[in-house]
Design a protein around this nucleic acid. Structure first.
Length: 113
DNA sequence: CCAATGACCGTAA
DNA sequence: GTTACGGCCATTG
C-alpha cells in the first residue's frame, strides 16, 4: 500500500461507486485524471485481492461485459453484480446506459428494455 | 534507465 | 454486426 499513486486513486473512485452501479475502466481512468489510462486502470485492479476493500466487481469494460481475467473467473463477478441488483442481458452484457455510473443513473427512463 | 506486460479503448476495414 | 490493428497509461523486473 502506500502506493500513493494512480493505484489508490482508482481504488478511491471504485470505492465511491454505489451498489447496483457499474463503471467502465475508461470512466475510472477519466476520473483518476487520465482518460486514456484505461489499461493502467485494469492493472491497478489486478493488484487488488478478491476480498479487497474495493468493489472491483463493479468495474467492467466498455462493452458492458466482464473482461477475461486470470484466475478468479468472470463468472464470480457476474454473480456479485447480480447480487447487487444488476441484471445482465441475454448476451451476458448489461446496460451501461442504465447502470452506468456517470450519474446517469437511472433517471428512470429512457427506456429501452 | 530501458524493456516488457496488462482485468483496455478507439478507430478502421 | 464483427474482426483487426495501434496507441496510451502506469507498474514491475
Amino acid at each position: 500500500m502506500v502506493t500513493d499513486s494512480f493505484y489508490e486513486r482508482v481504488y478511491a473512485i471504485v470505492r465511491e461507486v454505489p451498489p447496483g452501479t457499474v463503471v467502465t475502466y475508461a470512466e475510472v481512468a477519466r476520473r483518476a485524471g487520465s482518460p486514456l489510462a484505461s489499461r493502467a486502470t485494469g492493472y491497478a485492479l489486478n493488484a487488488l485481492a478478491w476480498d479487497a476493500d474495493v468493489p472491483w466487481w463493479r468495474v467492467v469494460n466498455r462493452t458492458g461485459g466482464i473482461s477475461d481475467r486470470p484466475g478468479v473467473g468472470a463468472m464470480v463477478q457476474r454473480e456479485r453484480l447480480e447480487a447487487e441488483g444488476v441484471v445482465f442481458s441475454s448476451d451476458g452484457r448489461l446496460d451501461l446506459r442504465r447502470y452506468g455510473w456517470d450519474g446517469a443513473g437511472a433517471s428512470g427512463f429512457g427506456g429501452q428494455q
